[in-house]
Computed example of a mutant assay.
Amino acid sequence: MVSRGCCPAKIGELTLWWKGPLWLHKEDADWPKKKNIYCQADEALLEARTVSHVLSTVKYDLSIVEKYSSLLKLLRVIALCRRFMHNASKKERLSGALQAGEIDKAESSIIRLVQASSFTSEIQDLCKSSQVSPKSVLLRLRPFLDKNNLIRVSGRLGNASTLNESQQHPIILPAKGVFTKLIFIYWHDNLMHGGQQAVLSAVRQKYWPLNGRNIARHVVHRCVKCFKYRPAVVKPIMGDLPEARVRPAQAFKKTGVDFAGPFIIKSSLRRNALLNKAYACLFFALLLKQGT
C-alpha cells in the first residue's frame, strides 16, 4: 500500500491492509474465478506510473577510426577484429600473419561505415531508385552502389579495359572525416613527403575525396617534417654601393680582382692525359664592370 501512494497515517483505517479483500472471508466455492479476480474500486488503490517516450536516432560510431593516427595500424586492427569474429563463429579458424585479402575486407568495412555516416540519405536513395536527390552534393558525380555496397563515381572510363575498377570508378569519400585525412597522410609519407598535387593524384587512383585539393594542401602544410626541411629563407637588406661604383671616372681607374680555383683541367686532348690544377684571376673596372 505504501508503494501505491498511501501515507502511514491512513494505514490504520484501511481494512484492505489489515484484513485483505472481502472474498477471503467467504467459503472457497464463493471465491471468484481466476479470470475475474479483482478488487472493488473503493477497496483498491491504483498504482501511479509515469510513461515516457524516447525518440532515438541512428548514429554510427566512428570512435575506432578516430583512435589511430596511422592508416596501416587502423586497417590491421580492424582486420584482427574481423578475424576474431570469424574464428568465434566458424569452425575453420584463421591464424598466422594477416593476408592481403583480410586487409582489403577491413578497408571496405571502414569505408562502408564512413559512407553510411556521411551519406545516409544518398545510400537510401540509391537503394530505392538508383539515383540521388537533386539537392545532394553527389549529384554531379552520378554515384552508384557496387557489389560491396560502396558508393563509387560513374565517370566515363567504363570501357577502359586496361584500368582496374578503382581507377575506372573511384570510391567516394567525405570531405570532413578522419579516415579521409589518414589516407592523405599515408600517401604523403609514401611519396617521400610529396607536394599537394602529387598526393592528390595518388589518392585519386583509388578514391574520390570531396574537396580533395584543399585536404591535400592542408595535410602538406601541417606536416612537421616538411616544415623543418623547408625553412623560410631570410633575405638580408643590401647595403649601399661603394663610391667607386657610382661616381663617374675613367675606365680602370678603380679596379677589382676576383680569384677562384683550383679547376681540374686536362693537359691535352688525349683520353689518358694528365690532370692539372688551374686558377682563374679576373681584373675588372668597378664602374663599367668590364673585365679582362
Rank of each mutant, 00 (worst) to 15 (best):
I110Y: 00
Q250V: 14
K176L: 05
R140D: 13
D258W: 09
L75C: 05
M1E: 06
N159G: 11
S108C: 09
T120I: 04
V65G: 05
S95G: 08
D125H: 09
I171G: 02
T162L: 13
S161G: 08
Y68A: 07
R49E: 12
R49G: 13
R217S: 10
A116Q: 13
R76Y: 03
K147D: 09
G177Y: 01
F119C: 07
Q131W: 03
R140Y: 09
L94T: 09
A278D: 06
N149V: 06
A160D: 07
H193W: 01
Y60K: 13
I103R: 06
E27R: 13
L138E: 01
L16F: 14
S166H: 14
S56C: 10
C226N: 02
Y68P: 07
A9K: 12
K289F: 00
D28K: 11
S109H: 07
G158W: 06
V65E: 05
N190W: 07
L113H: 00
K206T: 15
K181H: 13
K19I: 06
A280C: 14
D30K: 15
G12D: 08
E102H: 05
I123P: 08
Y279V: 02
P209V: 02
K235F: 13
G5W: 02
L287A: 10
R93K: 15
Y186I: 00
Y38P: 08
A232E: 15
S118H: 10
L182R: 01
W18Y: 11
W17T: 11
S117W: 00
V2S: 13
K73E: 15
K225N: 07
T255A: 13
K91G: 15
D104Y: 02
G194R: 00
K253W: 10
R140N: 15
F252D: 04
I265W: 13
L14V: 05
V58F: 13
E165M: 11
N272E: 09
E27D: 15
C39I: 14
L94W: 02
Y68M: 12
V257G: 06
S118I: 01
D189L: 11
A100M: 11
G177P: 01
C223N: 04
T50E: 15
N190Q: 12
G195K: 04
L46G: 08
P242K: 02
V203A: 01
D240W: 11
F84M: 15
F184E: 01
M85L: 15
V233L: 10
R142G: 09
L62H: 04
L145A: 01
V224N: 13
L14C: 12
K135E: 11
A244E: 11
F263G: 06
K176C: 10
D30I: 06
C39Q: 12
M85E: 14
E43M: 08
I64E: 11
K34T: 04
G5K: 00
P174R: 00
G195V: 04
A260D: 15
N276V: 05
K26D: 02
V114R: 01
Y207K: 03
A106K: 01
A202S: 14
L274H: 11
A9E: 09
H86F: 05
R83Y: 03
L275C: 07
A88F: 12
K176N: 15
D61C: 04
E27Y: 12
F184N: 03
E165Q: 08
K128N: 12
P231G: 10
T57Y: 10
R222G: 07
F179A: 08
L94Y: 08
E92T: 15
A97G: 07
C6I: 10
G194N: 04
W17P: 00
N276H: 14
P8H: 03
L182G: 01
E43A: 05
